[in-house]
Design a protein around this nucleic acid. Structure first.
Lengths: 207, 207
DNA sequence: GGCTGTGAAACATTTCACAGCA
DNA sequence: TGCTGTGAAATGTTTCACAGCC
């Protein structure tokens, strides 16, 4: 794919949805912008604009080549090799993440769970070892961790984020309801369950 | 998607962050737009614009009244009474949600878990009963469910969404990696773990 | 002096509509 | 004919900058 500057953030947010649409589509087929839009929950003009921004050309009167587009989006998302994920916090949420089958299928490998509770360390959850948090830094330095997931209580989330940074992790997905302060170069995405419910609550009352 | 509600969507997305900032601030104090921005991870101009849109006035040279603003945002979000939440899927994720302490503190009450597995129905998880999915419709009609959370495998998510709609639920938080089709008047928010990791992956390779 | 409130500009994103090509 | 690719307009959001008030 041709080199380019970065993509608009709105486009990046839609790439995973496009990829999911393409994975549900037969190999060797084509898909038009209307069908893509229906599966990816957007509209055809947005799809055409996004693919045009990606530098991907379709065929007028026909649509887009599914195999080629899948490959392009995977490359664009950096999913060419397995992405190594570490989960901190082996409570229900951490275990849910270790068990979540959708990751494997999409190229993410949960390589370890970390906790400080001696009743949990040493366990194996869905084939993933539960290690002590003290191992995190050396594991990160020797084995490499691409993405860290914070699945701990709010109170320790910032400390965990600091540890992850020390372990060389530059991408963090945070489930704790806390705004993590990180050094430049570390990317944080926040998934806050209460926030989602609050937004739903707003639209329930103002719909 | 038609715009429902009277606030800009970007503002609505920030209200929960403002509320969290205010909850961490002492009762009876004031907070200026700069401090609010730091805690809510935005900038002061955005804060002032948002509060102005809300019709909330601060005091020049001083800042905003914390108690009054907390109350206003809670009201705006529809958090004046407990919000009743039902979770469908009593796997690890469903159990994590039932155990999640942050909900109670923020006015959300998980009233039931639903599953079809007879090994799970009848259990009590964190004080929440696990009922059979067959009970969902009548429960919704008799007791009322404000928000439904889909924490099931992808394959059954659409069916569950249909059931929730029949039970009178008009707000759905969906954790399954599937685009739910719902009738008009039902609001869906999507939390997709793979999507979040894919976006992190993109910025790890570009950003 | 310090901070709010807000016009106006800048920027980002979506929508419209249609020319152009297979 | 059917669908892509894209200017141009419309819309939504953020940033700038400063007047106005406490």
């Amino acid at each position: 794919m041709p080199d380019r500057g970065d993509l608009p953030r709105a486009t990046v947010r839609r790439l995973p949805r496009y990829l999911r649409a393409l994975e549900a589509h037969p190999d060797g087929s084509t898909i038009d912008s209307e069908a893509m839009a229906a599966t990816a929950d957007t509209n055809a003009a947005v799809v055409r604009r996004d693919l045009s921004i990606l530098g991907f050309s379709g065929v007028r009167g026909v649509g887009y080549d599914v195999d080629a587009l899948r490959a392009l989006i995977r490359t664009e998302l950096g999913l060419t090799a397995d992405v190594r994920v570490a989960v901190v916090g082996a409570g229900n949420l951490g275990r849910a993440l270790a068990n979540y089958g959708g990751f494997d299928r999409r190229g993410f490998r949960v390589v370890a769970l970390y906790d400080t509770d001696p009743n949990k360390t040493g366990d194996i959850v869905a084939g993933v070892p539960v290690k002590h948090l003290d191992d995190l830094i050396s594991d990160g330095q020797t084995e490499g961790i691409d993405i860290g997931i914070v699945a701990t209580p709010e109170t320790v989330a910032q400390g965990v984020a600091d540890l992850l940074a020390k372990a060389g992790v530059r991408s963090i997905l945070n489930f704790a309801p806390a705004h993590l302060r990180v050094t430049a170069g570390v990317e944080v995405r926040q998934v806050d369950l209460s926030t989602e419910l609050q937004i739903l609550s707003y639209y329930r009352n103002h719909g």
